[in-house]
Amino acid sequence: MPVKTLTIDGQLITSPAEQTVLDAARLHGIKIPTLCHLDGVSEVGACRLCLVEIAGSNKLAPSCLTAVAEGMAVTTNSPRLQEYRKMIVELLFAERNHVCSVCVANAHCELQDLATAVGMDHVRFEYQFPKLPVDVSHDQFGIDHNRCVMCTRCVRVCDEVEGAHTWDVAGRGHNARVITDLNQPWGDADTCTSCGKCVQACPTGALFRQGATVAEMEKDKQKLAYLVESRARRASK
């Protein structure tokens, strides 16, 4: 197995050649914040929270999409990166309506955790307060667009793991939304198998199980990664 030797935050690390900087860092206990990354599905590099500095380049690089390289010197937590991350999280909060006190995901929310991790104490940007719908037409699940951060984890897990491709992104920019089938109510979306993977994958309270209490909304991300791994194992037998 070809390996690469690099430093992350000054720590000397040896890592398999095909690994990303993010995986290598995590394996060595170095935490890099992420949002669109989800173990077991492809990377899209959309949220930019995982940006790192690489010596010799003046561009910041998304660690989830950057492969390790020989002699690479990575910095994951400079004051500049901390400031950018804080800004990104503030923008996420300002874009839709994240009223944590009345959210089913309160205390089990990755966005909330990120806000704590980056030390966000207030939002410098103007809140947009869009009026967005909640769709509870599915008999088990629901989506509250007010809490969606457009990470597309639901889209990828439904396509790549379940194989249903019920979700996709419609529109663009500020008007972009995740939709089911032809932008029809989720309950009418024929492709949905009601497997619940998207609900597990969602980092916020945007996708939820109906009738779930806050305590029941804890999502099990490891379950998805496990599923992907065990399928791969079976396929390679």
């Binding site: 396509d159 249903a164 491709h165 019920t166 979700w167 996709d168 992104v169 419609a170 529109g171 663009r172 939709i179 089911t180 089938d181 032809l182 932008n183 979306a189 492709t191």
Partner: peptide
């Protein structure tokens, strides 16, 4: 019409809708 296209090209309807609305 979008559903017809999705069926013929064997694409998920949400992908067809997503591309069209982009």
């Amino acid at each position: 019409l979008l559903i017809y296209i999705a069926r013929q090209l064997k694409l998920p309807p949400s992908r067809v809708y997503g591309v069209a609305t982009f």
